[in-house]
Protein backbone atom coordinates (compact mmCIF):
# COMPACT_ATOMS: atom_id res chain seq x y z
CA UNK A 1 0.00 0.00 0.00
CA UNK A 2 1.25 3.49 -0.69
CA UNK A 3 2.07 5.97 2.00
CA UNK A 4 -0.85 8.11 2.93
CA UNK A 5 -0.63 11.65 1.74
CA UNK A 6 0.28 14.45 4.08
CA UNK A 7 -2.07 17.27 5.09
CA UNK A 8 -2.65 18.45 1.54
CA UNK A 9 -4.34 15.59 -0.26
CA UNK A 10 -2.97 16.79 -3.56
CA UNK A 11 0.61 17.12 -2.48
CA UNK A 12 2.73 15.20 -4.96
CA UNK A 13 3.54 11.72 -3.71
CA UNK A 14 7.28 11.12 -3.43
CA UNK A 15 8.23 8.20 -5.66
CA UNK A 16 9.42 5.18 -3.70
CA UNK A 17 13.14 5.14 -3.20
CA UNK A 18 14.30 2.27 -5.26
CA UNK A 19 17.69 1.49 -6.70
CA UNK A 20 15.84 0.39 -9.80
CA UNK A 21 14.88 3.87 -10.96
CA UNK A 22 16.78 4.26 -14.18
CA UNK A 23 18.26 7.06 -16.19
CA UNK A 24 19.00 7.51 -19.88
CA UNK A 25 22.12 5.32 -19.63
CA UNK A 26 20.00 2.30 -18.85
CA UNK A 27 17.57 3.15 -21.61
CA UNK A 28 20.50 3.12 -24.04
CA UNK A 29 21.87 -0.14 -22.63
CA UNK A 30 18.52 -1.80 -22.84
CA UNK A 31 17.97 -0.69 -26.41
CA UNK A 32 21.41 -2.04 -27.32
CA UNK A 33 20.66 -5.35 -25.63
CA UNK A 34 17.34 -5.50 -27.41
CA UNK A 35 18.94 -4.89 -30.79
CA UNK A 36 21.94 -7.18 -30.33
CA UNK A 37 20.30 -10.20 -28.71
CA UNK A 38 16.82 -10.84 -30.06
CA UNK A 39 15.25 -13.82 -28.28
CA UNK A 40 13.33 -16.68 -29.88
CA UNK A 41 9.64 -17.12 -28.96
CA UNK A 42 7.45 -19.79 -27.42
CA UNK A 43 6.01 -23.03 -28.53
CA UNK A 44 2.53 -21.87 -29.32
CA UNK A 45 0.76 -18.86 -30.74
CA UNK A 46 -0.14 -16.64 -27.84
CA UNK A 47 -0.86 -12.94 -27.79
CA UNK A 48 1.32 -12.90 -24.69
CA UNK A 49 4.41 -14.11 -26.53
CA UNK A 50 5.79 -10.62 -27.04
CA UNK A 51 5.05 -9.79 -23.40
CA UNK A 52 6.85 -12.93 -22.31
CA UNK A 53 9.94 -12.21 -24.38
CA UNK A 54 10.12 -8.61 -23.26
CA UNK A 55 9.71 -9.66 -19.65
CA UNK A 56 12.62 -12.11 -19.88
CA UNK A 57 14.87 -9.30 -21.12
CA UNK A 58 13.71 -6.61 -18.69
CA UNK A 59 13.58 -8.91 -15.68
CA UNK A 60 17.11 -10.11 -16.48
CA UNK A 61 18.40 -6.54 -16.33
CA UNK A 62 16.41 -5.65 -13.24
CA UNK A 63 17.45 -8.87 -11.52
CA UNK A 64 21.09 -8.00 -12.15
CA UNK A 65 20.45 -4.67 -10.42
CA UNK A 66 18.90 -6.43 -7.44
CA UNK A 67 22.06 -8.57 -7.24
CA UNK A 68 24.24 -5.48 -7.38
CA UNK A 69 22.23 -3.92 -4.59
CA UNK A 70 22.59 -7.02 -2.43
CA UNK A 71 26.34 -7.31 -2.98
CA UNK A 72 26.83 -3.60 -2.40
CA UNK A 73 25.02 -3.93 0.93
CA UNK A 74 27.30 -6.85 1.84
CA UNK A 75 30.41 -4.86 0.96
CA UNK A 76 29.19 -1.96 3.07
CA UNK A 77 28.44 -4.36 5.95
CA UNK A 78 31.93 -5.82 5.66
CA UNK A 79 33.63 -2.44 5.92
CA UNK A 80 31.37 -1.27 8.71
CA UNK A 81 32.10 -4.46 10.61
CA UNK A 82 28.40 -5.48 10.66
CA UNK A 83 27.57 -9.19 10.57
CA UNK A 84 26.34 -10.21 7.09
CA UNK A 85 22.59 -9.66 6.93
CA UNK A 86 22.03 -11.78 3.84
CA UNK A 87 20.18 -8.85 2.29
CA UNK A 88 16.79 -9.07 0.77
CA UNK A 89 17.72 -12.02 -1.38
CA UNK A 90 14.84 -14.01 -2.81
CA UNK A 91 17.21 -16.64 -4.16
CA UNK A 92 18.41 -17.65 -0.74
CA UNK A 93 15.26 -19.77 -0.29
CA UNK A 94 15.86 -21.68 -3.47
Amino acid sequence: MPDRDAANPFETREPRRSPLRMGPTWCALLTLYWLLFPQPTYAYIDPGTGSYVLQVVIAGLLGALVSLRIYWARIKDFFKGNPPSGGNDPDKHE
Binding site: Q39, I58, G60, G63, L65, D89, P90, D91, E94
Partner: peptide
Protein backbone atom coordinates in the same frame (compact mmCIF):
# COMPACT_ATOMS: atom_id res chain seq x y z
CA UNK B 1 15.75 -18.35 -21.43
CA UNK B 2 14.14 -18.29 -18.02
CA UNK B 3 13.60 -15.71 -15.30
CA UNK B 4 15.22 -16.16 -11.91
CA UNK B 5 13.40 -15.39 -8.68
CA UNK B 6 15.67 -12.41 -8.22
CA UNK B 7 14.84 -11.10 -11.68
CA UNK B 8 11.12 -11.41 -10.87
CA UNK B 9 11.69 -9.44 -7.68
CA UNK B 10 13.49 -6.78 -9.71
CA UNK B 11 10.60 -6.63 -12.16
Amino acid sequence: RSVSRRALQGL
